[in-house]
């Protein structure tokens, strides 16, 4: 009977849907994108990472008191053009830097510092829709997939947690918000689809003891 109850308890623990009330995790960015004019061209984006808040936290701990963080996307190749554009095989890097302030008039200020996460954007779609009814707004939506493959902080995440992140953004072409040399302002984030759990160092002996308990 005890075994039956224990088994039932285990099943319930596994099957109970998790109530997601923990703070969502994301690298929240605001940046500038240059859009290629023809197939084969490459999209680039330079952005600064926002510190976030207690309600949205970076997926790995970042030290905003002492460092600035930037996200840079390069070499994202336009494969198919149209109102929905399809891109592939871009590179995304999250930099940590405490020496220069990111400045859109000098893009090297976005790529100095330490590359703490390096990844690939395997696919990305950029959809442009012009509303046919008032207010006739032109809207731009961006949706891609990121796999982290390198960087000094890659090991802060377990291997399964490094893959299949979402790259989500909205685009804005208001000239007041677009910097010279760019085509769109992007407000977005890179986020895991599920919460990344931090790691704790423990000896094998401690782990075995925990298991026995």
């Amino acid at each position: 009977m005890k075994k039956l109850l224990l088994g039932l308890g285990c099943v319930l623990l596994i099957a109970m849907p998790q109530l997601a009330s923990a703070a969502p995790q994301a690298f929240d960015f605001l940046g500038q994108a240059a859009i290629p004019t023809s197939v084969g061209g490459a999209l680039t984006m330079y952005s600064t990472v926002q510190e976030g808040s207690s309600t949205v936290v970076p997926p790995i701990p970042l030290d905003f008191d002492n460092y600035d963080y930037t996200i840079v996307v390069t070499d994202l190749v336009l494969d198919t053009d149209g109102t929905v554009q399809y891109y592939s095989n871009g590179t995304i890097v999250l930099y940590e830097d405490n020496s220069t302030v990111a400045d859109y008039s000098d893009l090297s200020t976005f790529t100095d510092g330490t590359a703490i996460l390096i990844g690939t954007i395997s696919t990305l779609t950029r959809s442009v829709s012009t509303m046919l009814i008032p207010p006739y707004t032109v809207t731009i939506s961006v949706n891609g997939t990121v796999d982290w493959t390198g960087g000094t902080r890659l090991d802060d995440m377990a291997p399964p947690d490094q893959l299949d992140w979402s790259f989500l953004a909205a685009g804005n072409t208001d000239p007041a918000d677009v910097m010279p040399g760019f085509d769109e302002q992007w407000d977005g984030k890179v986020e895991p689809k599920e919460e990344i759990v931090g790691t704790d160092d423990a000896s094998f002996g401690n782990m075995k003891a925990s298991f026995r308990r």
């Binding site: 969502p24 949706n143 979402s166 909205a170 407000d187």
Partner: peptide, 15 residues
């Protein structure tokens, strides 16, 4: 203005 994302798009959303 901004981006609106459902869970289908891969966004984390509280229950």
């Amino acid at each position: 203005w901004g981006g609106a994302f459902t869970q289908d798009a891969g966004a984390q959303i509280p229950d």
